[in-house]
């Protein structure tokens, strides 16, 4: 565990707290993509299947359970909560997320480091996480004025990915046996997807005005 990894995980956790806070406190999920949230739920389920048969550390196990729980809570609020579900902008959330799932599955079957059931599902979760933010980014463009909490949620997610890249560089230069090409390539693509958002987020923040993605 190094400072970049810990900061990355805590930023990820904070992003989920911000999103849940927005939903619970404002009783609204305006501007939030249910498709992205459902993709994250799929990502966590397929990646953290190893909770059942491998143990890394108490930290890892607790975080996995927290991420799973928060992902399913968010999906529950957006789809089933009697007040919140009416604030979901269905007509703005039109990205065909099934293509992302199918594409990630095909890629995971073609490119993986071991052709076993759990390894393919794990690889699928890596590929799917890389693109899971796309429905949310497209929705932000369509939403117009983006509220602070939603903007901060996406910003924190992007920060988390950036910190993970620093973590990989650090680990590669300090650990003798560390290597994970599939994770690195997917992670760099994932982080690059945030570039546009970061540009407008920082620009609007700097000019002290409400976030709008043109």
């Amino acid at each position: 565990m190094n400072v970049f990894r810990l900061a990355g995980d805590l930023t990820h956790l904070l992003s989920l707290v911000v999103l849940l806070l927005k939903i619970v406190a404002t009783k609204s999920c305006r501007g939030v993509s249910a498709k992205t949230q459902e993709l994250y739920a799929i990502v966590f389920v397929t990646r953290y299947l190893d909770l059942l048969f491998s143990f890394v550390s108490l930290y890892n196990s607790v975080m996995k359970v927290v991420f799973l729980g928060s992902a399913f809570s968010i999906v529950y609020f957006m789809r089933y909560h009697k007040v919140v579900r009416h604030t979901y902008d269905r007509e703005l959330d039109t990205f065909r997320s099934s293509f992302l799932v199918a594409g990630s599955m095909v890629l995971a079957l073609l490119i993986n480091s071991k052709y076993t059931f759990f390894e393919v599902l794990w690889t699928f979760s890596i590929y799917l996480e890389a693109v899971a933010i796309l429905p949310q980014l497209v929705m932000l463009q369509r939403t117009g004025n983006i509220d602070n909490l939603t903007g901060n949620y996406v910003f924190l997610l992007g920060m988390y990915r950036g910190l993970y890249i620093l973590n990989w560089i650090y680990r590669y230069s300090t650990e003798r046996r560390y290597w994970q090409m599939i994770v690195w390539v997917s992670g760099i693509i994932q982080t690059a997807l945030y570039a546009d958002f970061f540009y407008y987020y920082l620009k609007c923040w700097n000019e002290n005005r409400t976030l709008v993605i043109p």
Partner: peptide
């Protein structure tokens, strides 16, 4: 010793 994949990240 070669570098190997490790699944100790989240």
């Amino acid at each position: 010793e070669s570098r190997g994949e490790m699944k100790d990240e989240l």
